[in-house]
Amino acid sequence: MSIETGDWIIEACNLSYMYPDGTQALRGVSLKIPKGGKIALLGSNGAGKSTLFLHLNGILRPREGVVRFAGSDLKYDRQTLLELRKNVGIVFQDPDSQLFSASVYQEISFGPLNLGLPEEIVRERVETAMAATGTGEFRQRPTHMLSYGQKKRVCIAGILAMNPSVMVCDEPTAWLDPKNARQIISLFNQIASDGTTVIISTHDVNLAYSWADYVFIMAEGNIMGEGDPESVFRDEILMYKTNLEKPWLVEIHEILLKKGCFPADSSMPRNRDELYQLLRNNNMCRREEMLNDFNNIRDEGRERNNVTLGIKRL
């Protein structure tokens, strides 16, 4: 993705923050969030991701440094904060810490009502958000009778109903099963395609690599690296320093590249399908052989659907 200068929605300059108990959570963090992008913030536990997120929404005030939204410095008065919170929504990791109401409908209506919108518009927004997140089907169930994944979707709907220009999600796929995680990710894709900037934090390098346009890597309260996923995840030293693993696609691509299977200038595959495509384009193996390999994998019962899909497209 090409990012032109000045196209930043949120900027943080040299942020430092220390919790009252003396934990130095941020040590001079600077980052620029491109407008309309899909951003992943990677880092291990305690790297400062959540603390940074709370700064983006004005919940925490940095000891040093500045947060800028759409180019102007954040002032911490009531009006500015309210305006910021209208534009930057946070979905917290634990849905039980976000859902305050037993009613799905009430929960989603809370945010847009705080924006001072008239009732009809709020009702419209609640309906739209419920439709987008698929939460309408359990609108009559109380939140304590919902599953974890359903609660998570209600949390997202609550933020979505505020129509923020930036949506920040703390560990959105943590504790979710693969099916629910996929649904959440495709929901984010949909939100991002409507022009909303989506920022997620995660430990999952594979997810960050496949999903994000731009990646930040955090460790010990600092941004250790950033860039498009292709370049960030090929940086051996950065991966080593931040205790992260390479995404499997990057690893396979590198191995195959070393073996001379692809031309050196071939683009890196961002997902399974792109890898298959690359293999096919470069006549790496004959079709029958590949089918055989795929069948073997399939017989082992791994990734059944994806493999069959891959074969069909070859």
């Binding site: 709370l54 209208k86 705080n114």
Partner: peptide
């Protein structure tokens, strides 16, 4: 973070 201003206003 969702603009709470002392009143939990919700719609039923």
């Amino acid at each position: 973070a969702r603009g709470y201003n002392g009143q939990l206003s919700v719609l039923a």
